[in-house]
Simulated assay, not measured.
Amino acid sequence: MQKLLITLLIGIACFILADPLFFFIDPKTHVSIELYNNQFKLSILQPFVYSSVPIDPLLSPDKRETMKGLMSVESSFFLHAFSKTGAMGLTQLMPSTARKLNVLNPFNLFWSIDGAQRYLTKLENRFGNLEYALAAYYEGPSKVASRGVSTEGSRYANRVLAESRRLKDQNVLIKDVLYIKPYIGVGESFSIGTELILSVLGIFDVEAGLDFTNSCSHFVYMRPNISDSLGLIIGERDLDFTLGLAYRKLPNFGVQFLLSSNDFDLSMMLKVWQIYFTAGISPKGLRFGVVK
């Protein structure tokens, strides 16, 4: 009966935390079950979207109104917005556009705004008209240059301009996200604990946790995001210095490796169709799972 219950729970939901960014771009409640050789751990990951910093001081005066309208339409001022087409961040830069603008991490608050402002200025200079520039931002400059502004592009530009007027004198705050992750572990030993996963302006993330098994253990990791696909991990677990590296190809693949003098952990996640397959290895043994 116990094996059947474990199998059923894994079939419902099983998620190995390969990288917080996978959760930040999809802020909803997750139920996680990690199965080890002699234990399974049940967790609930509960997101809290919160208001962080005001946007106005970060914008160029000549672009302030337009940029507020653009971000409202593109992301509703959510720092970790991620579209089905792969557009990222506050200003929804596509990966190819971000590379051309030398924006390594479009989820970084400052890089996203700077890149979008430079891009919009370039488009305005090219087309000589704000409506055309906004349409080109939305559907691509090559398409606008060859075919003119489409009905959809014009509708997008009008939405941005309408939002710009509406938000002109409003103090808008950026929205960010944190997760609280309480859990219990059942098997050869019983454990209980909680973790905090916090995004700091898209520049770096913070993970911290307390675990009570036979004694109290803890960890604190800081994760500087070098780019949207690469991040460092620096911190401590029970005062043992830990280093690591995380690579992700959002939203389909992620892998991370942690190493300290007494421990290591390698975990990965792969999305095939609409199913995530996960696996990991550490001194505790192997773990596997899937999530729909």
Score class of each variant (00 low, 15 high):
residue 56 D to N: 11
residue 57 P to D: 11
residue 59 L to G: 06
residue 60 S to C: 00
residue 61 P to K: 09
residue 61 P to S: 12
residue 66 T to L: 15
residue 70 L to W: 03
residue 70 L to P: 02
residue 71 M to C: 02
residue 72 S to H: 08
residue 75 S to D: 02
residue 76 S to K: 12
residue 76 S to W: 02
residue 80 H to I: 07
residue 80 H to M: 08
residue 82 F to E: 07
residue 83 S to D: 10
residue 84 K to Q: 12
residue 86 G to H: 11
residue 89 G to R: 11
residue 94 M to A: 12
residue 94 M to L: 15
residue 94 M to E: 03
residue 95 P to D: 03
residue 97 T to R: 13
residue 97 T to E: 05
residue 97 T to Y: 10
residue 102 N to A: 13
residue 103 V to H: 05
residue 105 N to Q: 10
residue 105 N to P: 09
residue 106 P to G: 05
residue 106 P to F: 10
residue 108 N to V: 04
residue 108 N to I: 10
residue 109 L to F: 04
residue 114 D to A: 07
residue 114 D to P: 00
residue 115 G to R: 10
residue 120 L to A: 01
residue 121 T to E: 14
residue 123 L to A: 03
residue 124 E to S: 12
residue 128 G to A: 01
residue 129 N to P: 04
residue 131 E to H: 08
residue 135 A to G: 11
residue 135 A to S: 15
residue 138 Y to D: 02
residue 138 Y to F: 14
residue 139 E to W: 11
residue 142 S to P: 00
residue 143 K to Q: 05
residue 144 V to M: 05
residue 146 S to W: 13
residue 147 R to E: 06
residue 148 G to W: 06
residue 152 E to Q: 14
residue 152 E to I: 11
residue 154 S to A: 15
residue 155 R to Y: 06
residue 156 Y to I: 03
residue 157 A to S: 13
residue 159 R to N: 13
residue 162 A to L: 06
residue 163 E to A: 15
residue 163 E to K: 15
residue 164 S to L: 05
residue 166 R to N: 14
residue 172 V to H: 01
residue 174 I to A: 06
residue 175 K to Q: 14
residue 177 V to Q: 08
residue 180 I to H: 12
residue 180 I to K: 10
residue 181 K to P: 00
residue 182 P to R: 14
residue 183 Y to L: 02
residue 184 I to T: 14
residue 185 G to A: 13
residue 187 G to P: 03
